[in-house]
Write a protein that binds this DNA or RNA. Sequence first.
DNA 1: CTGCGAGTATACCGACCGGTGTGGTTACCT
DNA 2: AGGTAACCACACCGGTCGGTATACTCGCAG
Lengths: 202, 202
Amino acid sequence: MLTTLDSSTPEGLRPVLQPLPTLTSAGTRLLEAAGELFYNRGVRAVGVDLIAETAGTTKKTLYDRFGSKDALVALYLLDRAHQWRSFLLERIELPASARSPEHSVLAVFDALETWMGGQLRGCAFVNAYAELGEGDHPAVPVIRAEKAWMRALFDDLTGDSAVGAHVHLIYEGTLVVLTAGGDASGMVEARRAVRIALASNG
Amino acid sequence: MLTTLDSSTPEGLRPVLQPLPTLTSAGTRLLEAAGELFYNRGVRAVGVDLIAETAGTTKKTLYDRFGSKDALVALYLLDRAHQWRSFLLERIELPASARSPEHSVLAVFDALETWMGGQLRGCAFVNAYAELGEGDHPAVPVIRAEKAWMRALFDDLTGDSAVGAHVHLIYEGTLVVLTAGGDASGMVEARRAVRIALASNG
DNA sequence: CTGCGAGTATACCGACCGGTGTGGTTACCT
DNA sequence: AGGTAACCACACCGGTCGGTATACTCGCAG
């Protein structure tokens, strides 16, 4: 049952991301600039000077609003998680009738394809995780939460934890194969694999 | 048929990685130091000064041997691909008799678990790809070759391209879920998913 | 004996890193 | 009128970045 996608409880039992703090206008510009730069070039490759300049403001304002580059990185990922979640949910919840697990899960992969739009930069969360090294970074909980949310979503959509796990593995693998692997046929193979995973439901 | 794992043609038709160049003693130390530092802390987070110091030599020698940091990064990945491939193959090829696709494929996941040894730093190739940004980096072909090699391996082991693709997606997803996702149960779910994927073979 | 490849030691380069400090200008709230 | 939060301009900090230059020592092959 798709209990968590009922119109009355659109978020259901899935873990909810912490909300985004209210931002000033310069803060918004900074977060938007950081978002594009961090994603396209990598977190460590982008300096705070460039972010401030791109946003049409100053480093001073950046540090007044966000406190540190690390905090800005964490907020960038939190913001992106919110964007992806709303993008995804409105593509899953629309056909409120005749909603099968296969239809819903494949809609997630359709949404992913649209979201990526041919880009090859991969998953922002996996990429950020790769750059953070061994220590504990404020962005790590955001990354973990995003992955846990996707897993819980697939559990809900399939109604089965084992099938949800299987589909989630395919989902994460698809992102890697499409981007780092450079294999453009990955999405076709993913959809075929998803149908097999769903057919295994007991 | 496991044509490419016959004892007479251990590499078979799978694409072969370019060989590692011969290294001097200081060069070997540099590559080993770079390997550990790059993997554990990230490529961009490690400077050439630290690598030279860790290897007990100088930056001068590093640049005499490798020419640039980018070239050293590419060689680090090529070296790691060779290590992983030999580690993996000796764990797959050993029981030359009674070799089923299920046994072989699950042996890959066993090898992966052993290779990772509880570490949470993820796939070196995916991590490096995440750090390279948009441009063309000498490491990209090495990354692509490694992913293509794993895919071809699964095609061979399963004897079916669709099943191989499915298992490869699960494999890449497992690495992400275990590390960035921080989900320790990912390996158990992966093995279950693999059995389902293999059972779909026509 | 000579030449050469390999390695060591150290100094240097301009650019950039994340982060701070000062001072001044708006605009809104009480 | 006074306070304050937000913002901008700009200068500054110590440290590190990738990469280069100079000069010296060693072992070895011709």
